[in-house]
């Protein structure tokens, strides 16, 4: 009898956990979109920088080492997506820190919910927001000349990649949020993301860089992530582009989620 009941119970428990995670994800998504003051900058600034770059660097596209592009805006589309998603992912983690600060997280822990569901639900909200951001940047910039050579298929991959990047960075930031329980500490990590982004090939091709700066960009994973997306925009579908745009953020994501879960376990054990 127990051999029959056990899989049923396990499946029920999994289903329940999934429903709880979905509810947490839904709450997190609604919470993000209800705070335009938090969401706005991560949507507006990347577009502002894209417009700024398109006007400033139009002559740079003829430099030796610069890839063949229709416009600088087309070149900068991938960077705009990654930049927006990186900045946006801080918002979700800061909200988690706020939940810890105001005691809501403790109430969740007291409820008969899955511990992992609390975290994964929050992260899923960040991933959804990241994908929405990517779609919005593509939709806004495409009519102004940021055409995607791999068409709608490529755009879909970029949206998916945006979601995974948000999940990856959101997980890392959530680990900070769980450890420090401080929204200020999470916001304080923002400059690190900015530095990581700038010391990559996000804004200019690696082929035009030199010296130590080039060496740093060569080892920075953000360079390869952006270049994968950029290949989808400038060249078209290819296995290498897909691998860079999907597998690099997925690999970071797996490690980051493990770090965040470990941090959660440490927090729970210390209580």
């Amino acid at each position: 009898m127990s051999t029959v009941l056990q899989p049923v119970a396990a499946s029920r428990s999994f289903g329940l956990s999934l429903r709880q995670t979905r509810a947490m994800a839904w709450r997190s998504t609604k919470e993000t979109f209800r705070q335009p003051a938090l969401v706005g900058p991560s949507m507006i600034f990347p577009i502002f920088f894209a417009a700024l770059g398109a006007s400033s660097f139009s002559r740079a596209t003829s430099l030796p080492g610069f890839p063949k592009v229709e416009s600088f805006l087309q070149f900068s589309l991938a960077a705009t997506v990654v930049q927006g998603v990186l900045f946006g992912s801080v918002t979700g983690a800061a909200a988690l820190a706020t939940d810890i600060q105001n005691g809501f997280f403790d109430r969740l822990l007291l409820a008969p919910t899955s511990r992992t569901g609390i975290l994964i639900g929050r992260l899923a909200g960040s991933a959804i927001f990241g994908a929405v951001q990517a779609a919005a940047f593509i939709a806004v910039l495409w009519p102004f000349g940021a055409t995607i050579k791999s068409s709608f298929g490529g755009a879909l991959v970029m949206v998916l990649s945006g979601g995974i990047v948000a999940l990856a960075i959101g997980s890392l930031m959530s680990a900070v949020a769980i450890k420090t329980a401080s929204a200020e500490a999470v916001q304080g990590t923002f400059p690190l993301l900015f530095i990581l982004l700038f010391f990559s090939s996000a804004f200019f091709p690696r082929e035009t860089m030199s010296g130590l700066y080039r060496n740093i960009a060569d080892v920075n994973p953000i360079s390869y992530l952006v270049e994968g997306m950029r290949e989808l925009v400038l060249v078209g579908f290819s296995t290498s582009a897909m691998a860079k745009a999907i597998f690099i953020p997925t690999a970071i994501c797996v490690v980051a989620i493990l770090i965040a879960l470990r941090q959660l376990r440490v927090r729970l054990a210390s209580r």
Binding site: F57, R59, A60, P64, F198, F199, F203, S210, Y213
Partner: peptide, 13 residues
């Protein structure tokens, strides 16, 4: 540092 490294090549225009 970041601007001069990233946009190093613009001086060649």
């Amino acid at each position: 540092i970041a601007f001069s490294g990233t946009f190093y090549a613009v001086t060649k225009i």
